[in-house]
Design a protein around this nucleic acid. Structure first.
Length: 274
DNA sequence: ATGGCATGACAATCATGA
């Protein structure tokens, strides 16, 4: 049966490294790109200081889970396009984590999960063990969530470069944090739930990365890692028509060290025929 | 030599990031 054509739905994830500093860039980006769902990490803002008014004025409904100084996540929903969020979760169930790294909500018959994975600091450290445990808890929760929601998207800063081609110098990074085998196993565990790496659904340029160190002119020298990802359940992978990294934001004055990743879905609310 | 930036908290450096 014929289906009414709808404008594509665009989902994005961006580690802003301080929303206070990056708000002008975010507003300008939202103004020039059409993105419907925006997941942000490292807002570094308490909920009281979240720039709700500015973002509502820009046409977005705001959901956030923040804390002072570190971490902090948010999901922006384009009001004109999307119904109000439901079933909002501001903490990862099964975790007693005080760090604000997780936010989930439902809109347009879709479960959207925004995640800021722990960095891990160094292989073998306490923070590394915390990272692996956090990934395990997320994976277990997602397993149940996928049983309930056919249409699910996991977006965020995973702090994992899944494969050698996601690393500018695989030998230099071999076994290091962000690239170690246990972390990559964690990533593959998420994929094993049925989640597809939207970026790898398509042919991509070589040396595609989402993070470059502020030091050593790493961006200019293409010394990056692909650690920010959009993972889609099978029903969403099927309607995903594009996924790209918006490197232009890394070129700006006073940039975040991460660039956004944007995925396009062929239609928004339309259910797949059954 | 393990830093080099950047950010926030805080008031000279220090924790953290990746």
């Amino acid at each position: 049966m014929p289906e009414v054509a709808k404008a594509p739905l665009r989902l994005a994830t961006w580690n802003v490294n301080s929303l206070k500093i990056r708000l002008p860039q975010l507003l300008s980006w939202l103004h020039t790109r059409t993105v419907d769902i925006v997941c942000l990490q490292e807002t570094k803002l308490t909920d009281e200081s979240f720039p709700t008014q500015e973002l509502e004025d820009a046409g977005y409904q705001c959901h956030f889970a923040g804390q002072k100084t570190y971490n902090g996540v948010a999901i922006l929903l384009r009001t004109e396009r999307l119904p109000a969020a439901e079933a909002v979760l501001t903490a990862l169930p099964g975790s007693d984590d005080v760090q604000k790294r997780f936010l989930a909500l439902s809109t347009a018959d879709m479960r959207v999960v925004c995640a800021y994975f722990p960095n891990g600091q160094a292989v073998g450290s306490d923070k590394y063990r915390y990272k692996l445990q956090w990934i395990e808890t997320l994976t277990q929760w997602l397993k149940g969530e996928l049983a309930r929601s056919e249409r699910l998207a996991l977006l965020g800063d995973f702090n994992i470069a899944p494969e050698a081609r996601d690393v500018h110098d695989p030998l230099l990074w071999e076994g290091q944090v962000l690239c170690s085998e246990p972390e990559r196993e964690g990533f593959r565990g998420l994929v094993a739930l049925g989640l597809g790496d939207a970026f790898r659904l398509f042919e991509q340029p070589e040396r595609s990365y989402t993070w470059w160190d502020y030091r050593e002119q790493a961006f200019r020298r293409k010394m990056g890692l692909r650690i920010d990802h959009i993972l889609l359940s099978p029903a969403l992978s099927k309607i995903c028509t594009a996924c790209e990294i918006d490197v232009e934001l890394r070129r700006l004055e006073r940039p975040s060290d991460h660039a956004p990743v944007v995925a396009t879905l062929a239609h928004g609310h339309g259910r797949e025929a059954r």
